[in-house]
Computed example of a mutant assay.
Amino acid sequence: MSLLRSAVYALVFYPATIVFVLACFVASLFGSGPMRSVVHAWTDFHHWFVRLLGTRVEVSGTIPNGSFLIAVKHQSMFETLEMMRIARTPVVILKRELSRLPGFGWATRRYGVIPVDREAGAKALREMLVAGKEAAASGRPVLIYPEGTRVHSGTMPPLQAGFAGLYKVLGMPVVPVAVDSGRFWGRNLPHGSGTVHFLVGEAIPAGLKRDEIEARVHAAINALELAPQPSA
């Protein structure tokens, strides 16, 4: 059943994504608003489709309105799409390779992302900080996966250095979000069925020292790892 679920997902979702990318090209002729509406339709489609495959979503807490830095636990591709629905059109920090994919990369750049080259070191950090300032000035929230990459369920690695730098430069409060998608999802495909939980923590104020903000965010995004395992 697990292999069948993964196969159905791959055979339906990825071809459908190509259709949505083409729709983005057409919608972009009429401005950024219609184009972003197509992106949201894509994430709504994904939300509906995975329900058919047995994945439910439960969100505890609410992302507040306004300019915030949203820090999310990262265990699979699942939350990268679902957070687009939960966080209200965020500017997303993602790895540069995704922003260079034919068609799809163009759509992400038009929607609003901050591509980061994880191999570029300090140069990548400087570029991210500049782009982060521009995003914050637009009034949209900025979404970051502070662990830097997808991690296995049950693991709690330290946050990447770029998170603290972005927090300091933007001067925005942080909304931490814990996720447990790794219980049912691999990096890109589902391998089980059940409920994925999103736990939105209380906003953490701007202006804290690096050790404190990293400790508080690390604890908050790992809240579901530290708590008793929720039922499916």
Rank of each mutant, 00 (worst) to 15 (best):
I204R: 06
M35S: 08
G121N: 13
R126P: 00
P205L: 02
I144C: 06
Y111Q: 01
V12A: 10
A232Y: 01
L208K: 09
A16N: 02
S181P: 11
V174Y: 05
L101Q: 12
P102S: 11
P64F: 08
L189C: 10
E202N: 13
L224N: 10
F68T: 00
V113G: 06
V72P: 01
V38D: 03
I213G: 05
L189Y: 14
W42N: 02
P90G: 08
H218Q: 12
M84Y: 03
H47E: 05
E82N: 07
A136D: 04
A71W: 04
A71I: 05
L69D: 03
K73P: 10
R140Q: 13
S138I: 00
L101K: 13
V169I: 11
A137Y: 02
V174H: 06
D211F: 02
A219E: 14
R110W: 13
P34R: 12
Q229G: 00
R216S: 04
A131I: 03
T155K: 14
C24V: 10
T89G: 00
A220S: 15
K133V: 11
A220G: 06
R5S: 00
G194Q: 05
S231K: 13
L129R: 12
G148M: 05
G112M: 10
H47Y: 15
K73F: 11
D211H: 13
I114C: 04
L94S: 10
P173W: 02
G154Q: 10
I221Q: 11
V177S: 07
H40R: 15
A223P: 08
A23G: 14
V177M: 09
H218M: 09
L98E: 01
L98H: 12
I114K: 09
A203F: 00
R109M: 08
L94D: 04
L129Y: 03
H40K: 12
V38S: 07
V50W: 03
G207A: 06
S153A: 13
S60I: 08
M35C: 12
F163Q: 01
P102K: 11
G61D: 03
A178W: 10
A220L: 04
R183N: 06
A223I: 08
P34I: 05
E225H: 10
R216E: 01
H47T: 05
G105M: 08
K168D: 09
L208R: 13
A161N: 09
E119G: 12
I86V: 14
H197Q: 13
L129G: 03
P15D: 03
W48A: 12
Q160N: 08
R100C: 02
H46I: 10
M156A: 15
I18L: 15
A203K: 13
L189T: 13
R100D: 09
G54S: 11
K209T: 06
H46D: 01
H218R: 14
K133T: 10
N65F: 01
K95E: 02
A223E: 07
D180E: 04
V175E: 07
L166H: 03
Y111T: 07
S37T: 10
P176E: 01
M84E: 06
F49E: 00
M128G: 05
M84C: 07
G201R: 07
H47I: 00
V116L: 15
L22V: 15
G207T: 04
F68G: 00
R150W: 01
H46T: 09
T17G: 12
M84P: 00
I204D: 02
R100F: 00
M35R: 15
E225L: 04
L166R: 03
L143G: 04
T80H: 05
V113I: 14
L189R: 14
S6R: 13
E119I: 02
L22D: 03
